[in-house]
Design a protein around this nucleic acid. Structure first.
Length: 461
RNA sequence: GUCCCCAUCGUCUAGCCCGGUCAGGACGCCUCCCUUUCACGGAGAGAACCGGGGUUCGAAUCCCCGUGGGGACGCCA
């Protein structure tokens, strides 16, 4: 294990979104790349806004994405506890250090951090009030992604609230010191805070960790950074929509980072091998759900049959697809597997599956009017239907090839093409204009059901 | 308003650090091919160096200024 220690420090005040996931991922990737330690620390100092529900969402989402932590809640570690709400003693100890150094004072019941320098008053237009500023030397931050950043921190700030709870800036720095964090990889929205943090590190006489401020993810429509309220922002949502976690990981790893070539789809092990801080971009990235969906399709397509079946079945169970289709018992496993495999090369996402396969589960399925009109629009569909019904008992349904041979023979005997039968047979047996090959549909559905559907369709013509 | 960060196709980006290529790839869009529908796949079209100065024989690449975008300015994190 290398000496690298990184942490992801979410606060359970809202759902786990793409931006948080990407920050967690970059920390995890860096830890895995360097053979370091990935720490999960829960920043729950704002008791008014925290909730256990959100905490569980964070754990679930991280586990789903495969972002396992080496130290943190549930797994322990030498620097625990890992929830800030349980670290009161640590903060008290560090607060004493600051007090002893004369770097704190009380005002309005809160404890403030005292910057060193000459004080003066000035009217702040933004806040519309007079504030006390301090003439300080600029803080210099050596950022692994931004380079040298200089910022003047010129106002004292609260480190312990009047209710006794310590504030983010303070606990964040204290824990990074106490947990021996070597690299702070976080969103660029924290860059302006970093001067506060450096001031605190200096007050504790500790060399600050290596900072790396990663670009933000912008919402795909409209201005501003992505927030938990935006469309497609929640990791949870991709989980319920049946996205493959490795696809999500792959896609978000490419938001603000790239291996420096044309490579896009790559196994997570390759991402780990290639990931490094210098490869991280400096400019913000806009989220694109189309590209995410495409990545997911690529992964779905590449899934070995048994894994695709497992994923699809997981989706079906989660969404109670069979129950919603009106079935009291699940269809036989081999039948279900066959139907699922038929669909694998055709769909872009698992969420398409219920609608895509509905006619395999139930004999009552909707008929798409457009598809019907199109199928009935040319030739003599009624005659084709009748011919299919005549030929059906003699059709060899053992394989797609044999069904195809049979249908082609029928078409040839009438001086027609395969397509003349395909269109009407499809809409009759599935109600749709698109789907797996008609030969596979015949074979999997079976002679009886196909016959019944063809007949029923013929009657309403 | 103050401070900080950033700037290549509509989007994600390669190229930039260490100036010299028809500025490359991917998503999306469009066309064609494959085909039994729909996908997948294949081929192709269209599409960008934010603007202005400077340095240089030569600038997407280095410097400055604009402009634009983003972020921070809480007893939130």
């Amino acid at each position: 294990m290398s000496s690298v220690r990184v942490r992801f420090a979410p606060s359970p005040t809202g759902f786990f979104h793409i931006g948080s996931a990407r920050t967690a991922l970059f920390n995890w990737l860096y830890a895995r790349h360097t053979g370091g330690t990935f720490v999960l620390r829960i920043e729950d100092t704002d008791s008014a806004r925290n909730s256990e529900e959100f905490l569980n969402v964070i754990y679930d989402s991280m586990k789903w994405l495969g972002l396992t932590w080496d130290e943190g809640p549930g797994v322990g570690g030498a620097f625990g506890p890992y929830r800030q709400s349980e670290r009161g003693a640590v903060y008290k100890e560090y607060l004493e250090k600051l007090k002893a150094a004369g770097r704190t004072y009380e005002k309005d019941g809160a404890i403030w951090f005292r910057l060193e320098g000459e004080r003066y008053e000035i009217y702040d237009e933004h806040r519309q009030k007079t504030v006390t500023k301090v003439k300080t030397a600029p803080m210099v931050i050596h950022d692994a992604i931004r380079g040298r950043v200089e910022r003047v921190e010129d106002e004292d700030f609260v480190i312990v609230r009047s209710d006794g709870n310590p504030v983010f800036h303070f606990v964040n720095v204290v824990d990074d010191i106490a947990m021996r964090i070597t690299h702070v990889i976080r969103g660029e929205d924290h860059l302006s805070n970093t001067s506060k943090h450096v001031a605190l590190f200096q007050a504790f006489e500790v060399t600050p960790p290596q900072f790396a401020h990663i670009p933000l993810i912008l919402k795909q429509n409209g201005p501003g950074k992505m927030s938990k309220r935006d469309q497609g922002a929640l990791i949870e949502e991709y989980q319920t929509r049946g996205y493959l976690p490795e696809a999500v990981v792959n896609y978000i790893s490419l938001l603000g980072w790239n291996p420096g070539g044309d490579l896009e789809k790559m196994p997570v092990a390759d991402i780990v091998a290639k990931f490094d801080l210098p490869g991280v971009n400096q400019s913000n990235a806009r989220f694109d759900d189309k590209k995410m969906a495409h990545m997911n399709m690529l992964y779905l397509l590449a899934l070995p049959p048994e894994l695709f079946i497992a994923a699809a079945r997981g989706y079906f169970a989660k969404h109670e697809v069979f129950a919603k289709a009106g079935l009291t018992t699940e269809p036989p496993a081999p039948y279900v597997d066959e139907v699922l495999l038929l669909s694998q090369p055709k769909i872009k996402g698992l969420e398409e599956l219920p609608a895509y396969t509905a006619y395999f589960w139930s004999d009552t399925y909707p008929t798409d009017d457009k598809a019907k009109a199109k199928a009935l629009g040319k030739g003599d569909p009624k005659a084709r239907l009748a011919e299919l019904l005549v030929a059906l008992p003699g059709l060899d349904l053992t394989s797609d090839a044999s069904v195809e041979a049979g249908l082609k023979a029928l078409a040839e005997s009438k001086g027609l093409g395969f397509g003349d039968y395909q269109a009407v047979a499809r809409v009759a047996t599935t109600g749709l204009g698109a789907g797996p090959s008609i030969t596979a549909i015949f074979r999997v559905l079976g002679r009886e059901r196909v016959a019944a559907r063809l007949e029923r369709f013929g009657q309403v013509l």
